[in-house]
Computed example of a mutant assay.
Amino acid sequence: MTNERPDLGFGEELDAFDPKAWDPADKKKREPRAPKAVTRQAAEATGFQSREPKSPSSPDRRRRTGRNVQFNLKAKPETIEAFCRIADRKGWGLGETLEEAVMLLEREISGTS
């Protein structure tokens, strides 16, 4: 077994490499960045999907409430949309909306108001 490393085929290029050629001052000589509107337009033209929220006015349903148990279930998309629509209309979080719905169903089942 030898300690000699195999030739990867770019040794001469590394010998000729000059680190001073990568001077940070060269960054200042580069072209300025394109305006955000131009960048956004190019991204949309190529089909890029942004992860940024579409509108900053979307409701924030996260609150510190002491609710700490997760409840997962499957539902039809239209049921979930209606549930979220009710929560948004009332200004409630999703946990609060569930609690209100359960309370109303219990009242209906027990026959009290």
Rank of each mutant, 00 (worst) to 15 (best):
M1K: 07
T2V: 12
T2I: 12
N3Q: 11
P6M: 09
P6V: 08
D7T: 10
F10W: 05
F10V: 03
F10N: 04
E12H: 02
E12P: 02
E12V: 03
L14K: 05
L14R: 04
D15Q: 08
D15W: 02
D15K: 06
A16Y: 01
F17T: 03
K20E: 10
K20T: 11
K20N: 12
K20M: 10
A21R: 03
D23N: 05
P24L: 01
A25C: 03
A25P: 02
D26W: 06
K27W: 12
K27T: 13
K28E: 08
K29Q: 06
R30S: 08
E31L: 11
R33K: 11
A34V: 09
V38G: 06
T39M: 13
Q41A: 13
A42H: 07
A43T: 09
A45I: 07
G47P: 01
F48K: 12
S50Q: 08
R51P: 14
E52T: 14
S55G: 15
P56M: 14
P56F: 13
P56S: 15
S57N: 15
S58V: 15
P59N: 10
R62W: 10
R63W: 09
R63I: 05
R63L: 05
T65R: 02
T65K: 00
G66F: 01
R67A: 05
N68K: 09
N68R: 06
V69F: 13
V69K: 12
N72A: 08
K76P: 05
K76N: 11
P77M: 02
P77K: 02
T79M: 11
I80S: 04
I80C: 04
E81I: 09
E81F: 11
E81W: 10
A82S: 08
I86P: 04
I86Q: 09
A87R: 00
D88F: 02
G91T: 00
W92K: 01
W92V: 00
W92C: 01
G93D: 03
L94F: 05
L94A: 02
E96V: 00
E96Q: 01
T97H: 00
T97L: 00
L98D: 00
L98G: 01
E99N: 03
E100C: 06
E100N: 04
A101V: 07
V102E: 04
M103R: 13
M103D: 15
L104I: 10
L104C: 10
E106L: 15
E106T: 12
E108Q: 15
G111N: 06
G111P: 02
S113L: 15
S113Y: 14
